[in-house]
């Protein structure tokens, strides 16, 4: 097994674990962590793409690395925004879970 294949498996595992957490766990913070796990898996994939030198065929393609850096900045901002919302929600409403929300919204008078 080459390093790239191993990294690919790890990336897929991270995406899978993150997605599982994001979908099944009703805790907002854990959902945000799940999102970050998926993000890490995707960034790892970009790393493999860079190593393969997809664009020009040279040893290490710098373009995917530039994309990963941008992606990390975006994911960081997204997490910050999500955490800010969770904190505000905690201030206003106390501990919350996102489980049964759409049913309660429907019943609202």
């Amino acid at each position: 097994m080459t390093a790239a294949t191993l990294a690919g498996f790890i990336g897929s595992a991270l995406v899978g674990l993150g997605l599982y957490g994001l979908i099944t766990d009703p805790q907002p913070i854990r959902k945000i962590l799940g999102f970050n796990l998926i993000g890490s898996g995707v960034f790892l994939l970009f790393g493999i793409v860079a190593r393969k030198g997809a664009a020009a065929g040279f040893a290490a393609d710098p373009v995917p690395q530039a994309m990963v850096i941008t992606g990390i900045v975006v994911a960081f901002s997204a997490s910050a925004l999500a955490i800010a919302l969770v904190l505000r929600l905690y201030e206003v409403a106390g501990p919350v879970s996102l489980r049964s929300e759409h049913t309660s919204n429907k019943a609202e008078k």
């Binding site: 994001l22 999102f35 998926i38 994939l45 970009f46 997809a54 994309m67 925004l81 996102l98």
Partner: peptide, 27 residues
């Protein structure tokens, strides 16, 4: 706030899958 949080989580999940597709296409 909880409507916004739910919206954000859906959107983030969506964009990370978009990004995964982008990585595959670039690769």
């Amino acid at each position: 706030i909880s409507a916004a949080l739910r919206y954000l989580l859906f959107a983030l999940c969506g964009s990370v899958f978009y990004l995964l597709g982008v990585a595959l296409l670039y690769g």
